[in-house]
Simulated assay, not measured.
Amino acid sequence: MDRRTAQHVNPDTPFLNDPAAQALCVTLEEAGHVALFVGGCVRNALLGVDASDIDISTDAVPQDVSRIVESAGFRAIPTGIEHGTVTVIVDGSAFEVTTFRRDVATDGRRAVVAFSKDIKDDARRRDFTMNALYANRTGTVFDPLDGMPDLQAGRVRFIEDAGERIREDFLRTLRFFRFHAYYGNPKEGWDADALSGIAANLDGLETLSGERVGAEMTKLLSAQDPAPALAAMTRTGVLSCILPGADPTLIAPIVHLEGLIGALPDPMTRLAALGGIDAPKRLRLSRADQKRLEAIQDQSLSMLSPTAIGYLAGQQAGIGAVLLRGAMANTPLDHGIIAQVMTGVRSEFPIKASDLPNLQGKTLGDRLKALKQDWLASDLAKSKNDLLGS
């Protein structure tokens, strides 16, 4: 094994300075095995971007990994041993250690693998060239499939045959667009082989669970600007497959308005703009996300002020609603609109049931509701005396 490059990750990279990760690698190496950081942590280190997970690849088979690390006093958990993965706990930190492997068979969701001693076999079963990068514990980068030029140029390319990679796991179609939104260089355009492979395998998207599709779409919609990726998904027919009726027309205006008022990207605001038939059910949204989505959609159609919307919908949904309303009306928003929403979020309705001692039951409820509507229509300006005197 040696496809090392002249490249090194930044010495300040977290996994090079993580005592637990370093101890694990040293333990495997001293037992005569290779231990390499792989995938997202290496890719992001080379880009200067934070990465949450630290994954390690090795030529040691899972049984040997477990034996070696337990002899060193670490804990081994066989979380995915049939696929070569052992979770190793070192001083309270968890690392997935996976044996080099190659795919033997796959149904588009799960693969049957065989273990290997060859890093190139392991690299070939990954999705994109920019994810087939490895680094040892000193930061030297190994690039068995020449993915470094693609990473540096912002080219998102499938490894070898795009169609084959997609048929190994149909979720890779959605990952392709998500990776383009995060790491792609617009000047590089879209890889023709990838788009061709995606278009030829649209039927496979129907085999994916709603949970997997929803998780991937949430990540895509959280990108700084998902508009180009969503437009490409529309052109290839992907978007209509996973979310019939969705239209990305309002996504670019939403992104523009977010920048204008200083709002952070919110996937539920973008999903509200995207639309689609039965989106919460198709994407298996959590109850919290579904509630926020509904609030954004409902309040974006209201005539209330941003302050009143903030009171009714809360911070995230309130900001999302004013953004969506602005995008639909093609209207610029004032930078202070977030402060207006937040004023509503912090406000309290000045009337309590005890302020209406002569009313009870339905009559009391109707009166409180009418007074609240009056208060909301006043941009939350009316006091208790103003309301009770009305």
Results as ranks from 00 to 15, higher is better:
residue 315 Q to M: 04
residue 224 Q to C: 02
residue 312 L to P: 01
residue 342 M to R: 15
residue 334 D to R: 13
residue 123 A to N: 03
residue 186 P to A: 04
residue 343 T to S: 14
residue 177 F to L: 07
residue 331 T to G: 00
residue 66 S to R: 11
residue 299 Q to W: 15
residue 256 H to K: 15
residue 311 Y to M: 05
residue 383 S to A: 05
residue 162 A to H: 01
residue 57 S to D: 09
residue 380 L to V: 02
residue 101 R to C: 09
residue 296 I to M: 05
residue 335 H to M: 10
residue 309 I to G: 10
residue 298 D to Q: 14
residue 247 D to W: 06
residue 41 C to N: 06
residue 19 P to K: 08
residue 331 T to K: 15
residue 123 A to D: 06
residue 263 A to F: 09
residue 354 S to M: 10
residue 295 A to T: 05
residue 69 V to M: 01
residue 30 E to H: 13
residue 289 D to G: 00
residue 384 K to T: 03
residue 255 V to S: 08
residue 205 L to V: 05
residue 316 Q to N: 13
residue 274 L to F: 07
residue 49 V to K: 15
residue 223 A to C: 03
residue 126 R to D: 05
residue 312 L to Q: 14
residue 383 S to K: 06
residue 167 R to H: 04
residue 228 P to Y: 08
residue 369 K to A: 14
residue 276 G to C: 09
residue 50 D to G: 13
residue 232 A to H: 04
residue 139 G to N: 06
residue 160 E to H: 07
residue 299 Q to C: 11
residue 231 A to S: 13
residue 243 L to G: 00
residue 183 Y to A: 11
residue 307 T to W: 00
residue 373 Q to F: 08
residue 172 R to D: 06
residue 367 R to S: 11
residue 295 A to V: 00
residue 66 S to I: 07
residue 256 H to G: 10
residue 358 N to Q: 15
residue 110 R to C: 04
residue 42 V to S: 05
residue 285 L to K: 01
residue 330 N to C: 10
residue 291 K to W: 04
residue 154 G to M: 12
residue 363 T to D: 11
residue 124 R to W: 07
residue 348 E to M: 04
residue 267 P to G: 02
residue 266 D to F: 09
residue 31 A to S: 13
residue 244 P to F: 07
residue 145 L to V: 15
residue 173 T to P: 01
residue 27 T to G: 02
residue 294 E to N: 11
residue 86 V to Y: 03
residue 307 T to N: 06
residue 169 D to P: 01
residue 244 P to I: 07
residue 374 D to E: 15
residue 12 D to Q: 14
residue 138 T to D: 14
residue 362 K to C: 01
residue 311 Y to L: 10
residue 163 G to W: 03
residue 233 M to E: 02
residue 381 A to P: 00
residue 243 L to F: 06
residue 194 A to L: 04
residue 222 S to R: 13
residue 207 T to A: 14
residue 390 S to G: 12
residue 277 I to C: 06
residue 311 Y to H: 15
residue 259 G to H: 14
residue 263 A to N: 08
residue 18 D to F: 02
residue 168 E to Y: 08
residue 239 L to W: 06
residue 182 Y to H: 15
residue 290 Q to H: 09
residue 75 R to L: 12
residue 283 L to K: 00
residue 219 K to Q: 12
residue 346 R to G: 12
residue 349 F to H: 08
residue 272 A to I: 00
residue 274 L to R: 01
residue 108 G to I: 06
residue 327 A to W: 11
residue 102 R to A: 10
residue 188 E to N: 08
residue 75 R to G: 02
residue 297 Q to S: 15
residue 151 L to K: 04
residue 188 E to T: 11
residue 209 S to A: 12
residue 264 L to F: 10
residue 202 L to W: 09
residue 386 D to F: 10
residue 18 D to Y: 03
residue 334 D to F: 05
residue 65 V to Y: 00
residue 366 D to E: 14
residue 135 A to V: 04
residue 119 I to T: 03
residue 375 W to Q: 09
residue 269 T to R: 01
residue 254 I to D: 05
residue 240 S to M: 09
residue 270 R to F: 02
residue 351 I to P: 00
residue 17 N to K: 13
